[in-house]
Design a protein around this nucleic acid. Sequence first.
DNA 1: CTGGATCCTCAACGATACTG
DNA 2: CAGTATCGTTGAGGATCCAG
Lengths: 124, 124
Amino acid sequence: MQPNAYTGACPTRVVLDRIADKWAVLILGLLAEGPMRFNSLRRSIERLSQKVLAQTLRRLERDGLLTRTAFPTVPVTVEYALTPLGRTLAETVDALRLWAEAHITEVQAAQRAYDGRGLVMPDA
Amino acid sequence: MQPNAYTGACPTRVVLDRIADKWAVLILGLLAEGPMRFNSLRRSIERLSQKVLAQTLRRLERDGLLTRTAFPTVPVTVEYALTPLGRTLAETVDALRLWAEAHITEVQAAQRAYDGRGLVMPDA
DNA sequence: CTGGATCCTCAACGATACTG
DNA sequence: CAGTATCGTTGAGGATCCAG
């Protein structure tokens, strides 16, 4: 039996819910370029609270997508890096971010057209 | 100035938030294979309520990713179809679903390993 | 520096009922 | 068939403080 995300009971649904997530996309996109520390990630992603960052990192770690390495320095240094599995996903989700950045103008134009429908009378 | 999803103020962030969405991914995945009607979509995606489906469809329509066509039959028939812009996105987001379905086993294994860390003593 | 614990708020969602 | 409207709940997330 194949996994099927359209089936409600399939565990795939839970995974999809986690990776189809704005913050996960941005985090994986950063880590694709190399390991990073907690505060470095926090500063790189504006409006991402420390709580949600910690939450998201722990979930991604649990899913085997990244590793958390603590170095016994003072104060402690923690580094996050993609696993091989995470690397296969990073390319996929980064494509999502790139799509958004590439097509933002078209989307905004569509939004203006939608919001203005019926409010103007073209050539009538 | 390039759009940058890591910048909090960038409109790209809003778009990313919308397309990095479980339901949007599943809807676009279905429409990639051809136009569909409302209740057909609803039945095809388990646990998706009619309210959230309507909401998501309207947002995707506003973003110029799909079209809504109502046929004056009795009762009314409404068909949803991808726009050319939506088609460029559908492939990208469908890759997300396919990744989830392809790697679910590895993710679940990682989850078990994570949840069981420290609870067993390997070969000690 | 890297978080965990707490409190609080608001918005998303399910359920339900109704309409063209 | 294809939705809109309303209500009630819940849980995600911001803010803040504290600790190893």
